[in-house]
Amino acid sequence: MASDTTILQPFDFTKDHLANKQQGLWEMAFRRLIRNRLAFIAAIILVIITAVSIAGQFIPAVERHSATFQQYQVVNTGPNSEYWLGTDNLGRDLWARLLYGTLFSLKIGVGTQIVVLIVGITIGMGAALGGKISDTILMWITDLAYAFPDLLAIILLRQVLFGRDWPIIGTGDPQIPGFPSAILGTILAISLVSWVTIARLVRGQMLSIKEQDYVLAARAIGASPWRVVRAHMLPNTLSTVIVAVTFGIPLAIFAEGALGFIGLGVPSPFTSLGALMGDGYANLFVNNWQVVWPAIMVATLMLCFTFLGDGLRDALDPRTRK
């Protein structure tokens, strides 16, 4: 019979059956992310915003007018064909300033998360894997950092960190290309408050992964502790951490915006979305547009990062996998 012959057919070892079906976690996650329309659109918008704001720094045709050049004959104009978004109270082009401020805020968002990742993963891992005493001490520090009201601590730290004579980069202007000390102070102030979430997350994940069978199996076949951590435990915490970082970027942009809004933003001639908001709000009665543009930009960034984070979480969380 026909069905018998199909069953009895020998397994074709020349075909690589496994390789055809196998998909890595990241490949699958990436496909799911692309299929998630909202997250995909959000990612594209973010790429465009980043690209345009970077291009503004290098291509005069994109920037159109200098972000710092003051023209006293065109103060506080509304949007027009020459100044697309209008000008501020010193006659500076708002389009150029918006691009500059957006890039600044993005740098702060990403820079914060880099510091948060380093501090958070180190402390979280130290607590989960370093034994009882290290766990107690590190978690006590975490609880202490958590006990401070966020914004209050950020404001205080910002005051401590600004205008300081740093050991390597000095007080002033760009020592690290693209990261003047005005950015570094803000980044450190925000990240020294927000590493707590990642540290707790990493600790929780590590503690649960430590008890998994595959870790036991790896140890049983004689893998070194470092290899177990590097090859098995860290990659498995990565998906949670990536999602947390994606949500962390808009939170950092938000914190920077809040600082700028109450007048503790980056000092002139630098500007960020928060500083633009603060300047614009001070000129509210003269020129409404000045506060509207950075507001729209911050809202767009926060919305896009939130959608991207949602999409990443769905894509990386095995429980929602079909």
Binding site: M277, Y281, L284, V291, V298, A299, L303, T306
Partner: peptide
């Protein structure tokens, strides 16, 4: 969702305007 993207310092000026 849109409320989640509107922190107070953004909403305040827009509401005031």
């Amino acid at each position: 969702t849109s409320g989640a993207a509107l922190p107070s310092f953004i909403l305040a000026p827009l509401l005031v305007i």
